[in-house]
């Protein structure tokens, strides 16, 4: 399990990273935390000619308020999701999901930008970006652009990122009073990829849900919003009938893959159970 040989370049600016990438045509890879990339290299599942280390690019760092958004630099590590007060205050769903991301030592290295860019359909943060209606700030040679999470995840490990582009930051709309979140996942062991996971952000007026965004992970080839379930719940009080209707709607929202150990019907069942439990917690003011 030793990687193929490659060259290494440590970029200090985004421009340096782009230049290096261009020089190596398509055979370069950016590395940040590397917690998924390094095993892929060791297993020789990937074999770039050049590894461009972007962890020393200052522009990709930092968590701060920018207007109605919390700007979370792409290099923000998973462990900072647990320790950074601004995240606890303005993006509590990321704080809630972070303890479920792998293990402590992985969280010390893994980055938010890396997780979003990889777009593992079983990972927590890509789905939470969906639930939060986050915007992904992307830099390319032609400049910067912001893509809504809804438009970012395209297919299995395929995103709106063009070759050579990298994620600068994730912008999360600030958490407001009247909003509630809930997160949980069903994993066989602590830190494992979940059999099903879900996070949600709801905006309440009194006991009525004005608006809700529900995102699942480990249910298909991409992190997936449960849009029909959302529409069942929008404007409703979360009573048993609405919860049941939302659970039923998941049949249309999710298309679980055929997997060797979790049959699609079981995954759908687990998603419904999880949705029911999380809506219950939401109702309790979770």
């Amino acid at each position: 399990m030793k990687a193929r040989a490659f060259s290494y370049f440590r970029a200090r600016t985004i421009e340096e990273a782009f230049d290096a990438h261009v020089r190596c045509a398509d055979e370069a890879r950016y590395i940040a935390g590397g917690q998924s990339l390094v095993p892929a290299l060791s297993l020789r599942l990937q074999a770039p000619r050049l590894l461009i280390d972007i962890t020393h690019i200052a522009e990709l760092r930092g968590v701060r308020r920018e207007g109605e958004f919390l700007r979370i630099g792409a290099l923000t590590r998973h462990c900072e999701m647990l320790s950074e007060p601004l995240i606890a205050e303005f993006a509590p769903l990321l704080r809630a999901a972070a303890p479920f991301v792998a293990h402590p030592a992985i969280r010390n290295r893994g980055t938010l930008g890396g997780s979003i860019a990889l777009a593992d359909p079983a990972a927590e943060f890509p789905a939470m970006a969906l639930a939060l209606d986050a915007e992904i700030e992307i830099a390319g040679r032609s400049g910067k652009r912001r893509v809504k999470a809804d438009d970012f995840f395209i297919d299995l490990f395929e995103t709106a990122l063009e070759p050579g582009e990298l994620i600068v930051a994730v912008h999360v709309p600030l958490f407001k009073s009247g909003q509630r979140i809930a997160f949980d996942e069903l994993a066989r062991r602590r830190g494992d990829y979940a059999q099903v996971g879900c996070g949600m952000l709801a905006t309440y007026t009194d006991k009525r849900v004005d608006d809700i965004r529900i995102a699942f992970f480990s249910v298909g080839s991409v992190p997936t919003r449960a849009k029909q379930a959302e529409s069942v719940l929008a404007g409703a009080v979360l009573d048993a009938a609405h919860v049941a209707a939302a659970q039923a709607a998941l049949a249309n929202d999710l298309m679980p893959p055929d997997s060797d150990d979790v049959p699609p019907a079981m995954r759908l069942h687990l998603a419904r159970v999880l949705l029911g439990r999380l809506l219950g917690r939401l109702g309790e003011g979770a």
């Binding site: 290494y8 590397g34 917690q35 390094v38 095993p39 060791s42 297993l43 590894l51 030592a105």
Partner: peptide
């Protein structure tokens, strides 16, 4: 591949997998 923890070291004071970085 970062699944067993046998290779943990401290990097700048934090525990990391030394198999998950070059």
């Amino acid at each position: 591949m970062g699944a067993c923890g046998a290779c943990l070291v401290q990097l700048d004071g934090r525990a990391v997998h030394s198999c998950l970085m070059f």
